[in-house]
């Protein structure tokens, strides 16, 4: 029994149906982790990309190195690092939050590249026009550059959001009760892994397909000229 649901192992179909509600609870955790992680990735990635555009060489170079390092090392190790090292320094976070931080950190390396490409695609004349109006750098980014960048970067960001969703099962190794972890726990108790793991393997493509449909819809809605932030 788990979350108040009992397993019905009389047949494979009955078994599958009886554990679906349990996996559904895990699915909610999975989605929460993906959404929270991606919001973090969007913010941190923007920070990296702005730092990389800094006029101070040491800052831009340092940011580039950090991004490269994050991108070239596995999420799993970054997760272990946060999970085991932070408490040594007195930072004790719930496993879910640690997982969200790790996901966001890893994907901030990807999103910063997307931002960079988006910024580079804004025509030089736009910068010049904004500068000619004597706008501050902060205002140029907030009012001119980022709004024009949003429709251009939305598709790539959407794809990374889907990728991140597919990496959330890694959080199960640090005790987050996501869908995969629950499936494994069910398997441990019933000695029948085939049905729970297969269900997880089917639920993910359904979710990613739905997400892709949603992203395409979003692309159509976004005005091509840009999205004003205020």
């Amino acid at each position: 029994m788990m979350y108040g649901f009992t397993y019905d192992t009389s047949s494979r179909l009955a078994y599958a149906l009886s554990i679906l509600p349990i996996l559904g609870i895990g699915l909610i955790v999975t989605l929460e982790a993906a959404v929270a992680g991606f919001v973090f990735a969007l913010v941190l990635g923007l920070a990296w990309s702005l730092l990389r555009r800094s006029r101070i060489r040491a800052v831009s170079w340092g940011a580039a190195c950090i991004v490269e390092f994050i991108r070239d090392t596995p999420l799993l190790i970054q997760l272990f690092f946060l999970y085991y090292v932070l408490p040594d320094y007195g930072v004790i976070l719930p496993a879910f939050l640690t997982g969200v931080l790790a996901l966001g950190l890893q994907y901030s390396a990807y999103t910063s590249e997307v931002y960079r490409g988006g910024f580079d695609a804004v025509p030089r004349e736009q910068w010049e026009a904004a500068t000619a109006l004597n706008l501050s750098r902060f205002r140029i980014y907030r009012d001119i550059v980022i709004p024009q960048t949003i429709p251009r970067i939305a598709p790539a960001m959407g794809n990374y959001a889907v990728s991140m969703l597919k990496e959330t099962p890694v959080l199960s190794v640090v005790t987050v009760l996501d869908m995969l972890n629950l499936a494994n726990m069910i398997g441990d108790r019933t000695f029948e892994y085939l049905v729970p793991l297969s269900l997880v393997g089917l639920i993910f493509p359904i979710m990613t397909t739905l997400c892709s449909v949603g992203i395409h819809a979003l692309e159509r809605i976004l005005p091509k000229a840009g999205v004003a932030l205020r």
Partner: peptide
């Protein structure tokens, strides 16, 4: 292509490791 790209690698590995022997 779509199925492989739609499922998490860890799920595939666990499936091959824990579930496949059951068939």
């Amino acid at each position: 292509i779509e199925f492989m790209r739609g499922t998490p690698l860890l799920v595939k590995l666990f499936w091959l490791y824990y579930a496949l022997p059951l068939i």
